[in-house]
Amino acid sequence: MKSYVEKRVICIICPRGCEIRVRLVDGKIISVEGYSCPMGKKYAEQEVCSPKRVLMTIVRCENGDLPVVSVKTSGPVPKDKLLEISRYLAGIKVKPPIRIGDVIIRNVLDLGVDIVATRPCMPVENKYSDQK
């Protein structure tokens, strides 16, 4: 017997938030409806097969002007890996100077994406000296 599934996906690509219906037979996509642009169609197809997200988090930084530097993955990663990466980063400490776009970790957990800095961090004597 064939398995027939209809999945509803809310597109998160842009703030419009289209509701897209994807029909699958035996796990294969047979139709996609409700999107308003090609990016949405692509997203919905991806979302029903293997949903992916960009991770945004922080990494601790020693002797920087701030004690943490914000980072993101250079591309989307499987949704169920988000926490695993964040947990992995708990073991990482970096040192300034760090600039936006600097690669903190290459090919994190072999997922094919890098961890890159999204905020600069400059050296300072005192760790918590927000006011110098």
Binding site: R60, V68, S86, R87, L89, A90
Partner: peptide, 8 residues
């Protein structure tokens, strides 16, 4: 605690 300490 420090941020990320919940993982440890």
């Amino acid at each position: 605690g420090e941020v990320k300490s919940l993982f440890k």
